[in-house]
């Protein structure tokens, strides 16, 4: 009798568990379906590119960058960035990435204050870049053939800031975890870059790249990007703090984004020589 009660209890508990498991399983199914039943590789890549570089039709942010060298010495940069997408990178994420314009106003350190970098980004060809040096009132054209040069002396490269052409690499989905799609990418023209491959962990819900690990030509990990904090701003999941580590030089750069705004209706003429020489103060606030 006593034993039977125990058995009964066990049975009812087991039933509970089974029902619970079924519910969880059904929920998981539902989630999987809402995940669009494992998107294609192409879709993952396009959506990732979109969330990383093309959110909204324009955007702006204040950026603080801290570069810490192997001896712990810090250098700081402060700039404001304005971005405009030339043509909406359509919701279907199909076709090549669109042209963009970037306006970057530097306010720190003092010797770079009021310096402006203007970039017309062409994913498929060389960018157009201008640098405005205020002390000379000089609107200089700068060469932009190598997009893998350091951005403002940090561990981030130009390409990290404005996005690497996704067609420059071949991509492979190597794993799907609870949180991530894990992509391995190999450059089509290895001679033009310093890495041999990189692995990217893409958050499955938001398609934000959370971590990227680069291997050098010897196959050794030497460069790591990480998204450290994310906020949803005007409905867009946005990285607000990120880090690039250079393992070989044992130094790192951290970027912190504040005053992030999307869809500000930034006029296209902001990205011309007029505003290179006279910064659009209202938009830079």
């Amino acid at each position: 009798m006593h034993g039977m009660r125990v058995n009964m209890q066990l049975t009812s508990r087991a039933a509970h568990y089974i029902i619970g498991a079924v519910i969880v399983f059904l929920q998981m199914l539902c989630i999987c379906q809402s995940y669009a039943a494992t998107p294609s590789l192409e879709e993952i890549i396009r959506k990732t590119e979109h969330t990383a570089y093309y959110l909204g039709k324009d955007g702006s942010a204040h950026v603080k960058m801290i570069i810490t060298d192997s001896q712990g010495r810090e250098r700081k940069r402060r700039f404001t960035i304005l971005r405009l997408d030339e043509q909406a990178n359509g919701q279907d994420y199909a076709g090549p990435a669109g042209d963009q314009k970037y306006y970057l106003y530097i306010s720190y350190p003092s010797d770079l204050k009021n310096t402006v970098l203007l970039v017309w980004k062409h994913p498929a060809s060389d960018d157009d870049r201008w640098l405005y040096l205020p002390a000379l009132d000089l609107a200089k054209r700068i060469v932009a053939s190598d997009k893998r040069t350091s951005f403002l002396g940090s561990d981030f490269l130009y390409e990290d800031i404005s996005g690497r052409d996704v067609t420059a690499d071949t991509h492979q989905l190597i794993e799907t975890t609870n949180d991530y799609y894990v992509l391995k990418s190999v450059p089509r023209e290895p001679d033009t870059v310093e890495f041999s491959e990189y692995t990217m962990w893409i958050h499955r819900q938001t398609f934000l790249p959370v971590k990227v690990e680069y291997l050098d030509k010897q196959g050794k990990k030497y460069r790591v990007y990480e998204a450290l904090a994310v906020e949803t701003i005007q409905g867009y999941p946005t990285v607000t703090r990120s880090r690039m580590q250079d393992l070989a030089l044992r130094q790192e750069s951290i970027m912190e984004f504040t005053r992030i705004k999307y869809d500000r209706e930034i006029p296209e003429d902001i990205f011309t020589e007029r505003y290179l020489r006279n910064p659009p103060r209202e938009l830079l606030r």
């Binding site: 692995t199 906020e231 607000t240």
Partner: peptide, 25 residues
């Protein structure tokens, strides 16, 4: 190489609220 990162603050369970300077003078 190839260790999955933990979810950064703001993704997954805990929604982060911004405490950083966002005031515009």
């Amino acid at each position: 190489a190839g260790e999955a990162p933990p979810l950064p603050a703001g993704l997954g369970s805990g929604q982060s609220t911004s405490t950083r300077e966002n005031n515009v003078s």
